[in-house]
């Protein structure tokens, strides 16, 4: 196989990984603090993309500058979801979260379809035709911006958790909820905060997808969400480093493995395309990891 092709595909894998990471750290933040999983996280991505779309359409601002606004809007949505839906069912059994999320998926997708129709909406990045060429490798500036934004989000989160009082309180809550309560931390406020941050990260992911040319309709959230869950579970629930490593690994593996399979069956004289196997490969990896380690690579040990 040509090395240039290989490196180019590696770059696409890293880009895909960035979107997964943004979704996955949001899920992990919420899980860390509340010990719940929001299966409707992809719908937050969809709403975030719509927020960016509408603000951009009405204001005409640079779409990248719209992202913070979309983050704030989705943070508010996140707080509402936490208060109205997840707060009442905390501690009533893990299956209930799954069922509740299912309801949220139906609710958000179809509300979006009613309000905004199912037409596909798109916006234009101002930098869409700028790209940097390194030898045979092509790097559109938009992707560099995406990687940079993801890195900024991760660093900002790290600083917040380590330095800020609020962030430290949040970390304490994820480590031990009861102890945190005893220390005078308002854990309910931490729940809201975690949901707000998680939703804001999902909004970032959605907006970045939209700006790089993907179209938004009410159903766009489901596929990236599924991948993000795979990332979270492979990396281990609640583990931020796990999410980063698993996100990049999955992003790259999904792109390389089909190629490798195609090449292998090519040696046997067969011509087959495995690009449609992306999700299948993600889940095979997921199942293999879980068979070996039932709580994921960086997951907490079983009780």
């Amino acid at each position: 196989m040509d090395l240039g092709v290989f490196i180019q595909i590696l770059v696409w894998g890293i880009y895909a990984g960035c979107i997964y990471i943004l979704l996955a750290i949001g899920l992990n933040l919420i899980f860390g603090v509340m010990k719940v999983v929001n299966f409707a996280h992809g719908e937050l991505l969809m709403l975030g993309a719509y927020a960016t779309f509408w603000i951009y359409t009405f204001s005409g601002l640079n779409p990248y500058l719209v992202i913070p606004l979309a983050m704030i809007i989705l943070a508010i949505v996140g707080v509402f979801i936490e208060r109205l839906c997840f707060r009442p069912i905390m501690g009533t059994g893990k299956l209930n979260e799954i069922f509740l999320s299912l309801g949220l998926i139906y609710l958000f997708q179809n509300l979006a379809a009613v309000f905004w129709t199912t037409d596909s909406r798109s916006i234009h990045s101002p930098y869409s035709d700028v790209s940097i060429t390194l030898g045979s490798i092509n790097l559109p500036v938009d992707y560099i911006i995406i990687i940079v934004i993801t890195a900024i989000c991760l660093i900002a989160l790290q600083l917040f958790m380590k330095k800020a009082t609020l962030g430290r309180a949040m970390r304490a809550t994820s480590q031990n909820r009861e102890a945190a309560t005893l220390m005078g931390i308002n854990v309910e406020r931490m729940d809201m905060l975690s949901f707000a941050l998680g939703a804001a990260f999902a909004a970032t992911a959605g907006s970045l997808c939209l700006i790089t040319g993907q179209m938004v309709n009410p159903y766009v959230g489901s596929i990236p969400a599924i991948e993000a869950f795979a990332v979270v579970i492979i990396g281990g629930l609640g583990s931020i480093p796990g999410a980063i490593i698993a996100g990049l690994t999955l992003g790259i593996a999904e792109n390389i493995v089909p190629l490798f399979m195609q090449y292998s069956v090519g040696l046997l004289g067969l011509e087959m395309s495995f690009s449609a196997w992306k999700d299948t490969i993600a889940f095979i990896i997921l199942i293999i990891v879980l068979v070996i380690r039932p709580t994921g690579i960086f997951g907490e040990k079983e009780e």
Binding site: F39, K94, I233, L286, L290, P294, T295
Partner: peptide, 9 residues
Amino acid sequence: LKAWFLAMV
């Protein structure tokens, strides 16, 4: 596997 893990698998 526990709840969410099983759901995803």
